[in-house]
């Protein structure tokens, strides 16, 4: 009997713990997003609804910043952002589970077919630019500029077990071991880089791969003969530990990666657009339309810089805005990559 009573007490006390926990949750629940001091509250915004955003982890920081500011101005609209990766995001998007999906590359042919089967139409909107940056250690004093062909020599599948020293990349480089670091094969960054240097999306397997770009930063900064690549933001934040390599696309001019060279289109072929895809059937929904307009408005382009990406040039941004106004569906890339495509021409 005593034991039984004890048992009962456990029941009560665990119920109590549960209730306390939920109450704590409730206490937090009365809080709302901290209003932003530097954003004007759009007085009288009575929009309400939900906007489900998902997709690429590269686009996430932009979407998060937009959702935060939009939410501060429109407290009635709940914008949620998930991270499923570009491919995972399209799977959910084409299954009709999300309203907007972020992508660090254009929609692929397979995904176009998947969406078509499900009857999902989409509006493709470039929202920012990024420049993949090739980095070496600051101690490396010979690799100032590399051609895309040299990058190909280093990274192509045939290089495996063969290209192991810097002097195999260019004859006047020292005879020092080449240490390669890069994102894992699942990432959109990897796909884009390999396509851009002409390796057809495939690379050698014997390099140090990490899904976390900060690990690549650590790796290259600690390896005097290392070389790696990732988005521009990871270089800008670690300029004291890394040195960016200028890229020669084959015409003899070396271009340093920077916000300017990415924006003016001279940093080829490693500059790339980032996208959001908006489901056409919900594009007229007031809350979603308001969020997308907020996202692509030039007034908010400063947020893009703030999280480490490069704003679209003005003329491209205007085309993006009219593209959304006209609700133009489909992809301008027709299932192929965005390499060598000039946005202002195709939009």
């Amino acid at each position: 009997m005593v034991l039984n009573k004890k048992l009962l007490r456990v029941g009560y006390s665990s119920a109590l713990v549960a209730m306390m926990a939920s109450l704590a949750a409730c206490g937090g629940g009365s809080q709302t997003a901290t209003p932003d001091a530097d954003t004007e509250m759009a007085a009288g915004s009575d929009l309400s609804g939900t906007v489900l955003v998902d997709g690429s982890s590269t686009v996430f920081p932009v979407s998060e910043a937009m959702a935060e500011e939009f939410g501060a101005a429109n407290p009635g609209v709940a914008v949620t952002v998930g991270v499923s990766g570009t491919g995972g995001g399209f799977k959910k998007f084409c299954a009709g589970e999300t309203d907007i999906t972020g992508a660090s590359r254009p929609i692929s042919q397979e995904e176009i077919d998947l969406c078509a089967q499900a009857g999902i139409e989409y509006i493709e909107l470039p929202i920012a630019l990024d420049g993949l940056t090739v980095v070496v250690s600051p101690e490396n004093d010979f690799a100032e500029c590399l051609t895309t062909d040299e990058l190909l020599t280093m990274w192509e599948p045939d290089a495996q077990d063969k290209i192991k020293n810097w002097n195999q990349v260019r004859a006047d480089f020292p005879d020092a071991p080449l240490g390669l670091y890069g994102p894992g094969t699942d990432s959109g960054t990897y796909d884009f880089f390999m396509d851009a240097i002409g390796a057809d999306g495939e690379s050698r397997g014997d390099y140090t791969a990490s899904e976390d770009d900060n690990v690549i930063v650590q790796g290259v900064s600690g390896d005097a003969n290392g070389l790696g690549f990732f988005g521009l933001a990871y270089f800008t934040e670690n300029q004291d530990k890394l040195k960016a390599v200028a890229i020669d696309s084959g015409n003899g001019t070396c271009v340093e990666p920077s916000a300017e060279t990415v924006a003016d289109g001279t940093y080829v072929p490693l500059a790339r657009p980032e996208f959001i895809y908006v489901k056409q059937s919900v594009a007229e929904d007031p809350a979603i339309a308001a969020f997308v307009n907020f996202y692509i408005s030039p007034d908010n382009a400063g947020l893009v810089d703030e999280v480490g990406y490069v704003q679209l040039p003005e003329e491209v941004n205007e085309k993006v805005i009219s593209r959304f106004e006209n609700k133009t569906v489909g992809s301008v890339f027709e299932g192929k990559g965005s390499i060598g495509v000039k946005l202002e021409e195709v939009l």
Binding site: G28, E64, V81, S84
Partner: peptide
Amino acid sequence: LITIGALTYIPFLPEL
């Protein structure tokens, strides 16, 4: 949780 699609940015709390 990432597989089932738990979100990353969410500006509100579940109601009690």
